[in-house]
């Protein structure tokens, strides 16, 4: 489990809105975060490995050696954060399960749960990242 701060910045919201298709989004100092914006907290996660880092080789580990693929995502909104807030994100392992794949092999699913709380410690958003890989792969 790890925690880090996620400042909700108006310029970041504008950039994110443009990236998901609202290409004329303007700067709004009081903007509500778009539905999937919480995933951008990764920019502030010191352990995030899908970026250039001085302590790790680039590019990152290829999926066939074990890191798997992003299979799905769930957001549960207790309320929608707005620009100007600073949230605290806590990342923890969630559930794991195995399903039979359509091509005969077994698939191992794993959740990574990130809980976002506001400055008062009240819940804002819970995000569940669901990863999948072949169940017979050894490497985590």
């Amino acid at each position: 489990m790890r925690s880090f701060e996620f400042p909700i910045e108006a310029g970041h919201i504008q950039e994110f809105k443009r990236a998901v298709g609202d290409v004329d989004a303007t700067f709004d100092p009081d903007a509500a975060a778009p539905p999937t914006f919480m995933v951008a907290a990764d920019r502030y996660d010191p352990d995030y490995d899908r970026r250039l880092r001085s302590d790790r080789p680039w590019p990152p580990v290829a999926p066939e050696t074990g890191s798997g693929f992003h299979a799905g995502m769930v957001f549960e909104y207790h309320r929608h954060p707005r620009a100007g807030e600073v949230l605290t994100a806590t990342v923890a392992d969630g559930e794991e399960w195995i399903k039979q794949g359509r091509r005969g092999g077994q698939l191992r699913f794993r959740e990574i749960v990130t809980t976002f709380v506001d400055a008062d410690g009240q819940p804002c958003v819970t995000a569940r990242w669901i990863n999948v890989r072949a169940a017979n792969e050894v490497r985590e």
Binding site: H12, E15, F16, R18, A19, V20, V39, A40, D42, R43, Y48, R50, R51, L52, P59, P60
Partner: peptide, 12 residues
Amino acid sequence: VAYAGASGDFHP
């Protein structure tokens, strides 16, 4: 590319 920058996910 815009999404990679906005999200921080630069997986190649």
